[in-house]
Amino acid sequence: MPEGHSVHRIARQFGRHFVGRHVSASSPQGRFADGAAILDGRTMSDARAVGKQMFLEFDDAVWLRVHLGIYGAWDFAGDVRGDPTTRAANGRMGQTGMRGASDDDAAAAPTTVVGAHEESLASIGAPRRTRLRMAEQETESAVDDLALEGFPPDPIGAVRVRLLTDSAVADLRGPTACEVLDAAGVQQVIDRLGPDPLIDDAEAGEDRMLARIRRRRVPIGLLLMDQSVVSGIGNVYRAEILFRARLDPHALGADLPEEVIRGLWRDWRYLLGVGVDTGQMLTMDGLDEEARRLALRNRADRHWVYKREGLPCRLCGTHIVMELAAARKLYHCPSCQV
């Protein structure tokens, strides 16, 4: 399931290529025909992400809410381009923005990052016709013969919603939620969500997360995945944030010291910013040059505990444990996280 950084990056694509433009909406699959008819012919005026939810605003305060869930993805095609806020290395997006990173680090970075669910989006420079899939995994490929095929390209597969401008198209497949809302309905959804570090005021969001954790006698490993407590954290970030804090995932939220909870918020705020800017969930920082290069090349060298069950902890050598918590895989070090 896409974590918060992916949804914020998708919102950026809509902000770059759709906001301010007249949009034709349709439902090639047919399951969203009524909703598409409401959106059709309107101008998109805003695109925002809150945690794992995305909201697209159109004329007259009409909104499209999308939650991708496990299987959802947006496919963009046409004159689309990569995120200009992400520094490019040799024409491709590399990991930068980590503590201590510099422009020289970016220039020396590998040209791509390989890893399921984390493959970086190619930076393609000037806009050109291309296909770009954005879910938890971002992949881009130029379509050299698109001009011969015509624009827009035919829908591929079961497209729930197609949003089309004169130069770009976005196709939505397999979402968990897809609905048209008014402003009040959008606010009701947002009110049920915990704070998002990229949306909420930093101090106010920190206080909200603190209050919601301290009143729950629930393991912190479950609370961090509860979107009503804090927005955007998924399985990868949950495991890594807890390890970075050396925190037992079974510790009850109500028992945690205030400074520990505030530290979790601040680390999530930092990691989310890095993820949005780079498209990668590199959760290890303070790396030397060689370790950084390894981490950029392969997810196996990018995380402290995620997907490392049975392997020795990078710090103490104890084997990393994987267990099921609320039907989700939870990774942790039984020695470091006590």
Rank of each mutant, 00 (worst) to 15 (best):
V113Y: 11
V66I: 15
V229R: 04
D75Q: 06
E258K: 13
E258F: 05
A61N: 15
S45A: 09
F243T: 03
D285P: 01
G4F: 07
A11S: 13
T278I: 06
I190C: 04
P219V: 13
S27L: 08
G115Y: 06
R297N: 15
G317W: 00
S123W: 14
P2C: 11
S27I: 00
V159W: 05
W268T: 06
I199D: 03
D60Q: 14
R129Y: 04
A49F: 10
R81W: 07
M225G: 10
S102M: 04
A291F: 12
L132M: 13
D171N: 03
L296S: 10
E259C: 04
E138R: 01
D166W: 07
A37C: 03
V159I: 15
D154H: 07
V236E: 10
A108T: 10
V189I: 11
T86S: 12
G100T: 09
L56C: 02
R87G: 14
D191R: 11
L181M: 13
I10Y: 07
E240Y: 09
H250V: 00
V260N: 05
L247G: 01
S123L: 14
G51H: 09
L252W: 09
F32S: 02
R162S: 07
I70G: 03
R162E: 12
Y237R: 09
G15R: 12
G115S: 05
W63C: 08
S228K: 12
R87T: 12
W268F: 15
R269C: 10
A122E: 12
G72M: 08
A36G: 10
L222R: 14
T43F: 09
R65L: 08
V260P: 07
M281I: 06
R244N: 05
A327K: 14
R12N: 04
A251H: 01
G35D: 03
E259G: 01
A170E: 02
A88F: 10
H5F: 10
G317H: 00
P155N: 05
E289H: 15
V189Q: 05
R65S: 15
A101P: 00
L264F: 03
M322F: 04
I261M: 06
H303V: 09
R269S: 14
H319G: 00
F14I: 03
L39D: 01
E258Y: 05
H67N: 05
G91K: 05
A245K: 01
R160W: 07
P110N: 11
K329E: 14
Q29L: 07
G20A: 01
V114A: 14
K307F: 01
T176C: 00
G35M: 08
R308G: 02
R65C: 06
P175Y: 01
V169T: 08
T43E: 04
R328C: 00
A295N: 10
M1R: 11
E3C: 07
D104L: 12
G194Q: 03
L324E: 14
A327C: 04
A245W: 02
E136H: 08
T278H: 12
G69F: 05
H303D: 02
H117K: 13
D267S: 13
L181N: 08
Q53W: 13
D46T: 00
A183F: 07
V218E: 12
L222C: 11
P197G: 04
V218L: 07
R128L: 11
F151T: 01
L146E: 09
A245D: 01
G30I: 01
P127G: 04
L148A: 14
G185C: 08
